[in-house]
Design a protein around this nucleic acid. Structure first.
Lengths: 244, 244
DNA sequence: TCAAAAGTGTTCTGTTTACACCCATGG
DNA sequence: CCATGGGTGTAAACAGAACACTTTTGA
């Protein structure tokens, strides 16, 4: 019977001193920011201008404050960097290796964010040393940030196949070719044009506009929008699952 | 250019005071312990014997120590409770709502564990107030523990379909019926016996023993073991994916 | 001899893949 | 008039779902 030695996660107010014996740690969030520019999947990185690892690329991050939860912290960090709010954010994993940050013990919760690069050209990113990289040409990152990016890519791949989160990366109006480019970037493999369009159409959650995008081909390509409301109804009423 | 106001996750040694302005938090781990007794999926819960929420059921948990990472903390908490080490553990999600624990602000990282209930009857669980519950009859839990369990169940479902983690829940030797019971419990739906066996056999990672389990039927059922080595080789050499 | 669980294949259906030509237009 | 990307359907292969009877043996 060792119950009395077992730490208990939660604690009544009258036992605050119980908690006070516990170690307290710094908790950070790091954001893997994915973007799409109608052609390729990108990732937003910042160049460190302090030692150590000065000049090396890094994810953006920040510390959790007492007044916010992790989702809020990630949104704040993202807004501080990009000026954007209302961005799709999802928690991925918490990294806690003791020496992951040589500066000081820090636990970091990784989040990934999805941004349509073109629609918000956000007057330049609000930090000089930030830069978009093609996902396949991104530099190596500090600490365990490479591992975070790998996990984020895996999560994005999985989610894109089972939830309509791809549309977070596209402008409101997009062509089938752009949607296919996006999926090809995310999945890192070529897809058959006809099979892809058939699949998307069978999901029946896009609205085809009369409008065409004339900027790429002479013929022009029809624009589509994602019908959020229709999707929501299908999910609610028929248990519809978006699956590519 | 707000770069200088941006907190940076990682920090050089010479800037320790930068970190010292940051809020520090208590970080806990909570474990969702799944077990299987050859019939049903179970979950191990403990009854709180302190206020508040005294008498209510809870996950086991403990605080992260400075000397360990989260995986180690989860393993330690689990071993403290059950006496078992070398248990399958996987991080699920980090919970951080400000008032999730009314006692004190605590961030909790949820892990799930898989245990074969029968093989380790671990001389009784080393804490009086712990009890196995059928997963479908488990009581409501304190704080956000119900949400943790739901996420753990979803993760277990997903993993069981794509990785051979089910065998962590079974004794070394098991019958096809037990394996099917396990999958039915995890997926919470009935499966067709013939289709299930055909599927499992097509994966070609089990060894059929000459031995039979005579404890359930008069006819007896052949015992199987999971061929870990064969599985490993298939994954490495052919990129085999375990998929049910 | 019968009750209770074990064991075993085939058909059908739906999904996924592979694949090639005409269209519209601006230059 | 031609180069470029846009748009379209069908057949074959495969995977998943449905389905029923025989075997064994202890009581």
């Amino acid at each position: 019977m060792i119950e009395d030695n077992l730490e208990v996660t939660s604690n009544p107010n009258q036992q605050l001193n119980y908690y006070e014996n516990e170690d307290c740690v710094l908790l950070a969030v790091d954001c893997i920011i994915f973007g799409f520019d109608k052609e390729k999947l990108k990732i937003l990185l910042v160049k460190r201008n302090i030692e150590p690892e000065k000049g090396k690329w890094s994810l953006i991050g920040g510390f959790l404050k007492k007044t916010e939860d992790l989702d809020e912290a990630a949104a704040r960090v993202l807004e501080t960097l990009t000026g954007l709010s209302d961005i799709y954010l999802e928690q991925i994993h918490t990294y806690s290796k003791i020496d992951r940050d040589p500066g000081q013990r820090t636990i970091s919760v990784a989040y990934y964010a999805l941004i349509d690069v073109d629609s918000h050209h956000f007057d330049g990113i609000q930090i000089d040393a930030a830069q978009w990289f093609d996902i396949k040409e991104a530099p190596s990152l500090i600490f365990d940030h490479n591992a975070m990016v790998e996990k984020a890519k895996a999560r994005l791949r999985r989610r894109a196949l089972s939830k309509p989160i791809g549309f977070e990366l596209l402008p409101e109006k997009f062509t089938m070719r752009q949607l296919q480019n996006l999926y090809e970037s995310i999945l890192d493999k070529e897809l058959d044009k006809r099979n892809f369009i058939n699949k998307i159409n069978s999901l029946d959650v896009l609205i085809k506009l009369d409008e065409k995008d004339m900027s790429v081909s002479r013929k022009g390509a029809y624009l589509y929008v994602f019908d959020k409301e229709k999707y929501r109804k299908k999910v609610e009423e028929d248990g519809f699952i978006f699956k590519i």
